[in-house]
Structure formats: structure tokens, C-alpha cells
Simulated assay, not measured.
Amino acid sequence: MEKQGSRALLAAVIGMGVLLFIGSLALVGVLVHRMMHPAPAPAAVVAGTVTAPPVIMGADAAGDLVMDEAPGTHVQAVTARPDGLLAVVLGGGGADRVVLWDPAGRRIVARLVLGHP
């Protein structure tokens, strides 16, 4: 009877050792994968106000990008996307809206109006 108990205990110890070994290999694999393929930086949220009068979107004399928005429009949040675009949430001055801005191309890619004023 003692041999049966010690054999079962030996089998359990060997099984747990194998599981620990496989788990360690999986952990090392995940770490190597994350080092080889880093995740993009977390998105930033910034608040501010737009005080410029409405101007048609384009570059002004100084080369700054300006947008045609109603007076009182303010920036509620800015989120950086992995593809390099910025999602800008605008509020005030009418309906809330989300604008996808391409800073590298100096253009507005898309505009989503969330409701009627």
C-alpha cells in the first residue's frame, strides 16, 4: 500500500514539474514576442480652447493649419492613434464632433458630427 501512495505522489510531482516547465517556456515566449513587437504608446488626453475666429481650413500666411469652426468651439480631448492620426473631440459652438487630423499631411481626414446643435 505504501508503494501505491508513493508512486501516485511521484507521478504528481513529475506532472507538476512538467507543467511548471511548460508555463516557464510560455512566459519566456510572451516576453520575447512583446520585446520584438512593442505596443504603441498610450493615448494622451489634452484639453484647451480654440479662440481664433472661424477661418476656412487651410494654411495661413505663417503656414499654420486652421479650421473653419464656430466661435466658442473648444477642444475637449486629443487622442493619438497608432497610424499617426489625431482624433480631436470638439465641443461648443454647435453640435459635438470628432475630427481625424493628419498632422504629417496637414489635412483633415474625416469629420463625425455627433448630434444636431
Rank of each mutant, 00 (worst) to 15 (best):
Q4Y: 08
A77G: 07
V45N: 14
G48D: 10
G94T: 02
G72F: 01
A44H: 11
A59T: 13
A59V: 12
M67L: 15
A110V: 01
G5W: 12
D68P: 02
W101F: 15
A62I: 07
H116F: 12
V109Y: 03
P40Y: 00
G58C: 04
R34I: 01
T51F: 04
E2N: 14
T73N: 01
V66H: 09
I56C: 09
G5V: 12
I56Y: 11
M1Y: 10
A70E: 10
A104V: 15
R107V: 09
V113L: 13
F21M: 11
H33R: 11
L25N: 11
L100H: 02
H74K: 09
S6G: 02
A104H: 08
A11T: 05
W101P: 02
A95H: 08
V78E: 00
L85N: 08
M67T: 02
P103K: 04
P82D: 05
V99G: 04
V109A: 14
L25A: 12
I14Y: 01
L86D: 01
I14N: 02
A52M: 10
R81Q: 15
L85M: 08
I108M: 07
P71C: 02
V32A: 13
R97K: 15
E69L: 15
K3N: 12
R7K: 10
P53T: 00
M35Y: 13
A61W: 06
G94V: 02
M67Q: 05
L10H: 08
R97T: 01
V13Q: 09
S24T: 08
A77D: 15
P40N: 03
L114P: 04
P71W: 05
V66C: 04
M67D: 06
K3D: 14
H74L: 12
V109K: 07
M36W: 11
T51Q: 11
V18H: 01
H116D: 15
G17S: 07
L31M: 13
